[in-house]
Each structure stands twice: as structure tokens, then as C-alpha cells.
């Protein structure tokens, strides 16, 4: 499927975890899943590169894991519920991990949440001419 045919491709700052992402992210997400077990967490922490090399992931995915680059990990097929297993093994809260994908520091992100979160106004459509009006009913 061509990206332009996806009805959600015009939602700004958002990656929808669809079949294309599942396909490219399969091994990355299964690696994250392995961190549910304490023994695997220990092995990963002991030698991250060696542990990653046991998984048929792309170099770009491995590098993004080593760099804890969550924006890149999402782009390479990572799913947030799997990626938080990586950030949790680092002792990071979900909010702290999530904040790194925004243009805000963790502190400013939490401040934004305390103030009611990010407004949907201007954040519905990549085309800002559309973004002020409410989205019309979209087809199932």
C-alpha cells in the first residue's frame, strides 16, 4: 500500500503501527519483548552490542537501540509498548521516554501534561489549512 493511500498519513507527529510497521519492526519488537525476563535484561546490560547481534535486526535498528533514540526506533518499526520495556530496563518512566520524542524536555513535557496536555487544535492535520476545523466523520 502506498503511504498516500493511508487515511492517517496526514496526522502530524504520529506513526500508526500498521502492517507495514509490524513487518519492518518484527525482530526489533521481539528483542524488546525478551527484556521482560530478568536474565535477558542482565545479559543485555552486560554487553548490549553482543546481545543485539543475536537478533536479526538491521544495523540502523541496533544503533537506534544503543542510542536509545526513540524517535528513530518508532520510525524503524518499534511499537511504544515494546519500546517501554527497553526504557523500563533503564529505569526510565514511560513519560520520560515518551517526552524524548517531542520538542520538550522531560520537565517541560510533564509541565505541559499538568496543564492539561497537548491541545488537539492545530495538531489534527499536517495541512494547517485544515487543522482549525474539526475533522469530518471519517470512514471506518
Amino acid at each position: 500500500m502506498n503511504n498516500n493511500n493511508k487515511p492517517y498519513s496526514n496526522i502530524p507527529g504520529t506513526t500508526v503501527f500498521d502492517g507495514d510497521m509490524v513487518r519492518v519492526g518484527f525482530h526489533l519488537n521481539q528483542f524488546c519483548m525478551s527484556l521482560m525476563q530478568a536474565s535477558n535484561r542482565d545479559a543485555f546490560k552486560q554487553d548490549e552490542r553482543a546481545y543485539l547481534d543475536q537478533w536479526p535486526m538491521t544495523q540502523a535498528q541496533k544503533n537506534a537501540v544503543l542510542a536509545r533514540d526513540f524517535t528513530q526506533l518508532i520510525a524503524l518499526g518499534g511499537n511504544i509498548y515494546y519500546l517501554v520495556k527497553l526504557s523500563s530496563s533503564d529505569g526510565l518512566s514511560v513519560a520520560a521516554a515518551v517526552s524524548t520524542m517531542t520538542d520538550l524536555s522531560p520537565e517541560d513535557y510533564m509541565e505541559m501534561m499538568r496543564n492539561g496536555g497537548r491541545s488537539p487544535a492545530g495538531n489534527r492535520f499536517t495541512d494547517h489549512r485544515e487543522s482549525d476545523k474539526k475533522s469530518s466523520k471519517e470512514q471506518q
Binding site: I11, P12, G13, T14, T15, F70, T71, I74, I80, V94, V98, S99, M101, T102, D103, L104, Y109, M112, M113, G116, G117, R118, S119, P120, N123
Partner: peptide, 17 residues
């Protein structure tokens, strides 16, 4: 209810919705 845990738009909350 409303929440988004990824991307630049993370933190979205739509109280009205």
C-alpha cells in the same frame, strides 16, 4: 481516555472529545 504515547504529538489530550 485521550492519550498519545509516541511522536512529536505525544501528550495529546482532548478533554472536549
Amino acid at each position: 481516555m485521550s492519550h498519545q504515547l509516541l511522536g512529536e504529538r505525544a501528550g495529546l489530550i482532548n478533554r472536549e472529545w
